[in-house]
Design a protein around this nucleic acid. Structure first.
Length: 882
RNA sequence: GGGCAGUUAGCUCAGCUGGAAGAGCAAUUCCCUUACAAGGAAUAGGUCGCAGGUUCAAUUCCUGCACUGCUCACCA
């Protein structure tokens, strides 16, 4: 074995092995419990970023852990076609050639899309392989492949026939750049600086006027009323009066509506029903005219000729100028939220448009119920409330998009010979109908729109298990509902909530039992990683520089449930060092193993150190397992690190060397058996997070030919070595050792110099323990001989420490600096005096002694005692030195 | 405006069923000791955001406040 863990070759080897041997392919097996995860399908446009690396590392950890527990695990891979986002990417490529999608036409453009997807769509899946993900690659799915397409059509038809899907002209969020409608959650609001224009609306037959405040003067052209709050005294007399719309000279009414806030602006609001959702609702309540003035390309229409064709911003400028002379009271700078397209950041225009909608009311209620009943549980639970609140306020989902890349809406219209639509009801169907049931017509045209990409995503847990083709297939019946969904919170509404709705509607069952929500990866300054900020850390680069296990460990360790994490090269470096530590500790054991012929499976812990490390390990492994179970992956990683480094390596391996170096083969074998026993289980426990290095060492330890840690199971045998007293005994020894080490260090005794020690027994509580285990002290504190005794006089030129019932003298003839020792002892004396003071005050407090539990009182008493002893001894010693 | 997090050592974060403040990185000192210098030993550094309350005891529980971040929302 190399002195340094060389990860590159080893990682490549295991990646290939897991895939070629199909270690993670899963078949239904009734004799085992399933554990299922479906991957949040990455978009085919993407390559692996830190967010993917985190998300998939966490899933892989769960999968590998459950596999060790004996579950029949399935993790389904796949990618998402990514609707608008992907189309935009290909459109940009076309633009470089100086072309638009219209130059190609729908069919040719789609060919281009498919070609692009076939060339680059698998990039990210290959990167997941490199990350070590235990996915069942034979089940790789794509949201637009045949099976998934069937599922989408089937679902649409189901909703359509149930009357839940309908088409209508409604006010929708429109992206003029993508030229498509968006759903409410696809709009991102950002605060921006703008103005608030105060415009005078003259009252008919009067010299008076009402002033309205608006951020959008250009929409004045589409106003059909001015609204005020019914309780607003200022305007009470004006409700019902007629106003003259400036510039347009049209008559509009003053209406009263509860939604108006008296305290904002002037308390009077212009109502533009065709281009504002609040105004649209007011219009419904007051039966107002809806006047469309903005077109689907974001330009003015349908109004006075001089504005037609202007963009919204041009019109705003022009109208503001025209208002200035007679109608503008004032303009104030104002900051407010502007909706932008989540795919291209263009300002959203609310416009009236024919779209398909899905009524989600009933599904939402069911989705709320399963969360309330904890059939689906959130980890951390704090996400439950936002989830429920969102569902409670949900409006119908606009599911149609005016783009080409996606699932075309499976609705067919009966047409006449000239291609005009007949009056017949549209038909939802898998294929083009043969005959119209209404008019017996034979010609049809399919709806032009495609479905929101999130519509197919909402079906993901069902569709990847073959629901589209067969609702009763074995995989679906066995693996559904899935066990856990692991995802970041940014798609809780876009995706997670909708899968619950669809699962309950289509299969009457939740899609997953647990929802594990992790945070977002940020840079070391807490900033979100983004290309524009240039602070992106490429996970592939990290894998190459530090190793994949290091990347995974760093991510795991940072992944506190529900919290964002800051990560940098330092995190990866620490993780790489840990991997190297595991490597070297194992190397040490394996080297010693090579020197003996065979090892017994069973062993009998004979020494304090053995029982101690086995007890510590039992504690740690219980903790680690329970952390994995409860999605506290960060805690699991920390416990793995702490146990291995500070307990196993720093103490136990060091102590084991006493016996490993011994000539007695039996002694040697015994301690090696324990080292190996712990190492093996430790490797299992660490393998979900660090699968590569643990696989490699496991194989070396067991059998170079065939032993696979990923296919091993946790042993059920409880060896029950645990002894509480061993923990206490060992910590007494450790305390003595570290005190001597400190003493040596402060006296500048070189670590390579062996010295002798005198242990003056002050209290017999630890005498036999320390005598029995004095070799530990000798070894770890570099002491060549210890003399025990009562009433040992302090030798000249020695350093002193009072600890654990002993007065320890280190004779340092020729090594000691008397002044330094005085200084040190004075400091210790002062500490001890403070301690005595504190404990004495506490014990004098009757409230404490009366009410505190006895164990607490005993502890304080013991501390008081120790302090008193220490003071006495140090005082004596100081006098001695003077 | 509503909701949710967070505020602990220079940095990144643990700890919180209430009983003497922890890790990693960075810093300082010493050491290439026969697994590991990607290492070992030791040191220094914190009135645990602020103010109250409950308690014998509060970083930990309660209340209020401040600041930071996220998120939702019809303030034109």
């Amino acid at each position: 074995m190399n002195k340094v863990y060389e990860f590159k070759e080893i990682e490549k080897k295991w990646c290939n092995f897991w895939i070629e041997k199909k270690i993670f392919s899963a078949k239904p097996d009734k004799s085992k419990k399933p554990f299922t995860i479906v991957i949040p399908p990455p978009n085919i446009t993407g390559s692996l970023h830190m967010g993917h690396a985190l998300n998939n590392t966490l899933q892989d950890i769960l999968i590998r852990f459950k596999k060790l527990q004996g579950f029949n695990v399935l993790w389904v891979p796949g990618t998402d076609h990514g609707g608008i986002a992907t189309q935009n990417v290909v459109e940009k490529l076309l633009k470089k050639e100086g072309k638009t999608k219209y130059d190609l036409g729908r069919e040719k453009f789609l060919e281009k899309m498919w070609q692009w997807r076939n060339e680059t769509g698998d990039t990210i899946l290959n990167q997941l392989k490199k990350l070590g993900c235990g996915l069942d690659w034979d089940r790789t799915a794509f949201t637009m492949d045949e099976s998934r397409s069937k599922a989408v059509k089937k679902t649409f038809i189901h909703f359509f026939n149930k009357g839940l899907i309908y088409r209508g002209k409604r006010l929708v969020n429109w992206c003029p750049r993508c030229t498509t409608a968006l759903s409410d959650i696809e709009v991102e609001y950002e605060n921006e600086k703008s103005n608030l224009w105060y415009i005078k609306y003259p009252i008919k037959n009067s010299n008076d006027f009402i002033v309205v405040a608006t951020t959008r003067p250009e929409t004045l052209l589409g106003d059909s009323a001015v609204a005020v709050n019914p309780d607003d005294e200022r305007y009470k007399n004006l409700v019902g009066k007629i106003l003259i719309l400036p510039l347009v000279n049209k008559e509009i009414k003053v209406v009263s509506d509860f939604i108006i806030d008296k305290n904002f602006g002037t308390g009077a609001v212009k109502v533009t029903p065709a281009h504002d959702s609040t105004d649209n609702e007011i219009a419904k309540r007051h039966n107002l005219e809806i006047i469309e003035i903005i077109d689907s390309d974001g330009k003015m229409i349908n109004v006075d000729g001089k504005y037609v064709g202007l963009t919204v911003l041009e019109a705003r400028k022009k109208i503001a100028e025209e208002l200035e002379t007679h109608f503008l009271e004032k303009v104030e700078p104002y900051q407010h939220a502007i909706g932008r397209c989540y795919r291209c950041s263009t300002a959203i225009e609310p416009i009236m448009s024919h779209q398909w909608f899905l009524n989600v009311k009933e599904m939402s209620e069911k989705a709320i119920d399963v969360a309330n009943e904890e059939k689906t549980k959130f980890y951390p639970s704090s996400w439950k409330k936002p989830y429920i609140l969102w569902l409670e306020n949900l409006r119908d989902w606009c599911i149609s998009r005016q783009i080409w890349w996606g699932h075309r809406i499976p609705v067919f219209y009966c047409i006449d010979d000239k291609g005009n639509k007949n009056e017949c009801p549209p038909i939802a169907s898998f294929e083009e109908p043969k005959e119209c049931p209404h008019c017996k017509g034979k010609n049809f045209t399919q709806d032009e729109d495609v479905l929101d990409t999130w519509f197919s995503s909402a079906l993901w847990p069902l569709s990847v298990l073959g629901w589209g083709e067969d609702e009763n297939n074995e995989s679906l019946n066995y693996f559904y509902p899935t066990s856990t969904l692991a995802t970041g919170h940014e798609i809780l509404y876009l995706w997670v909530a909708r899968m619950v709705q669809f699962g309950l509607e289509l299969r009457s069952d939740i899609p997953y039992k647990d929802i594990f929500i992790h945070g977002i990866v940020r840079d070391k300054h807490g900033k979100k990683m983004s290309k524009s900020l240039g602070n992106v850390i490429d996970p592939i680069g990290v894998m190459e520089n530090f190793g994949t296990d290091a990347l995974r460990f760093a991510l795991a360790q940072a992944a506190a449930p529900g919290r964002d994490m800051q990560i940098s090269d330092e995190s990866f470096l620490a993780a790489r060092n840990f991997a190297n530590k595991i490597w070297n500790a194992s190397r040490f054991i394996i080297m010693n193993l090579d020197a003996i012929d065979s090892l017994d499976d069973k062993f009998c812990p004979s020494e304090l150190a053995d029982i101690w490390i086995l007890s510590e390990f039992e504690n740690s492994s219980k903790k680690i397992k329970s952390f994995y179970e409860t999605y506290n992956i960060d805690s699991a990683a920390r416990e793995i690190y702490d146990f291995f480094w500070t307990k196993y390596c720093d103490w136990y391996i060091e102590l084991s060397k006493i016996r490993i170096m011994s000539d007695d083969i039996k002694t040697k074998k015994e301690v090696l058996s324990i080292l190996i026993y712990i190492l093996k289980i430790f490797l299992q426990l660490a393998s979900p997070i660090m699968p590569f290095i643990t696989s490699e060492i496991w194989q070396i330890l067991n059998n170079p030919d065939c032993q696979i840690i990923a296919e091993s199971h946790f042993s059920n045998d409880s060896l029950e070595f645990f002894q509480e007293t061993a923990l206490n005994k060992m910590s007494a020894i450790q305390e003595i050792i570290s005190n001597i080490r400190t003493l040596r260090s402060e006296m500048n005794i070189s670590p390579s110099v062996q010295i002798s020690a005198l242990f003056n027994i002050l209290d017999d509580k630890n005498t036999s323990l320390v005598k029995e285990n004095q070799d530990y002290i000798k070894r770890l504190a570099k002491i060549n001989s210890i003399e025990f005794g009562k009433n040992i006089e302090r030798p000249k030129n020695s350093a002193l420490e009072v600890v654990g019932g002993f007065e320890i003298f280190l004779p340092l003839e020729g090594l000691i600096d008397i002044e330094k020792e005085k200084l040190r002892l004075t400091k210790e004396l002062s500490n001890a005096k403070q301690e005595l003071e504190r404990t004495t005050v506490t014990l004098q407090n009757e409230n404490f002694t009366k009410r505190a539990p006895q164990s607490e009182i005993d502890k304080i008493k013991a501390r008081q005692n120790d302090a008193a002893t220490k003071i006495k001894k140090i005082n004596g010693s100081l006098n001695f030195l003077l």
